[in-house]
Design a protein around this nucleic acid. Structure first.
Lengths: 203, 203
DNA sequence: ATGCTAAATTAGTAATTAGTTACTATCTTT
DNA sequence: AAAGATAGTAACTAATTACTAATTTAGCAT
């Protein structure tokens, strides 16, 4: 039996705090997550949280970093195995959906920060994240076009927006349904529609 | 010159408060809008707000009602003029986008409430709203299929999700861009992609 | 003009928030 | 085993929150 150490290092606690936020955001609006709730979820006192992060905002920055890091890795790994750009898009889509299924609160945390005032530092970070994501999608679309795998007159920027929207639509769907189980199956039904939207040649 | 009456009726103030929320939500996360901020925006004291709404939650319910009412009217009017189901979808899409352009905070307020706990009364209202919206889209798609205007094997439910996602993707886009000006033009570029997704016959 | 009604103000309340401080307990290093 | 470092606690603070009650005042019908 593993005896739970009463004292953990700052590094370990930081990860715990990030996961606490991700967990708590599953049932609450992100802004409503208090440092008290985080502490309670970890079995610590509220003051202890501030041993590991200087401010509440620092926690949210760390959460965004965590999402960027993990989603980024998952996506990079998926795309790396692709045979061609269209296959890459499919793998990217599936990897993203799998990530959301594992961390349903992640996209909502991101969207939530996106609503903050423009000068907000966390929002800036989120904008960068989404910009990189969008660029990745646009590149794959451009390559697909260059290899004549999709509609030759394809508007890549619009197609990238639709890609993001497809994922976002699924997020709304699962928020309505209430359980993240439906996500994967709904995603499978949505993908053929996206393929047709970008005018991919059917196999 | 119109002399501004210093005292207005509860009915008038309620509408003012709803509009204040919609305005303030343009630059802040919805949850961060306080009754103090609302009062200040109207040139009233904070206590005055509670002369016209019993609780803060009642304000948010009124805002959701307002969105449902106005978006509903706009959409109904647009669809009524349609020549056929596919034309109806286009008009519905354009009406929705025009509404968002006029009230950019509306979709974000809706999405925000969607994140609240399941038992939250405002969330319940929002779920109903989105359900009616989705049903409307699904019906149009079913009619389009019946009239052989779209892909005969079309998955209507998935196509409805993609429709919502298309709009949502544009919302994300404008949040990133920072200004709602880009919305209309981005929407025009996105629509042909959606048409292709549902396999509509090109004119 | 004069009262009546209801909108608005003023000045509160209790609860909750992020963040701090003085202190204790535990681990690591030597 | 002693000493230094640091995770954790308990008990605060100052600010902000939604909400309330007593009082004042504006606008209306008569």
């Amino acid at each position: 039996m593993i005896l739970p150490k009463s004292r953990l290092s700052t590094g370990e606690r930081q990860i715990e705090i990030i996961h606490a936020v991700l967990t708590l955001a599953a049932e609450n609006s992100p802004d409503a997550i208090t440092t008290q709730a985080i502490a309670q979820h970890m079995g610590l006192t509220q003051g202890a949280v501030f041993r590991h992060f200087p401010t509440r905002e620092a926690i949210w920055l760390a959460v965004v970093d965590w999402v960027e890091q993990n989603l980024g890795n998952v996506i990079a790994a998926a795309v790396a195995e692709a045979r061609d750009p269209v296959d890459g898009l499919r793998r990217l889509f599936e990897a993203h959906i799998a990530f959301i299924a594992a961390h349903p609160s992640a996209p909502r945390l991101i969207f939530n920060e996106l609503q903050k005032p423009a000068d907000h530092p966390v929002k800036q970070r989120v904008c960068d994240l989404l910009d990189r994501y969008r660029r990745r999608v646009t590149e794959l679309l451009a390559h697909a076009k260059a290899e004549a795998l999709v509609e030759p007159e394809l508007d890549e920027a619009a197609a990238a927006t639709l890609f993001v929207g497809t994922v976002q639509g699924l997020v709304v769907q699962t928020l309505l349904a209430g359980d993240p189980q439906t996500l994967q199956s709904a995603a499978r039904r949505l993908w053929p529609l996206y393929l047709r939207a970008i005018g991919v040649r059917q196999p």
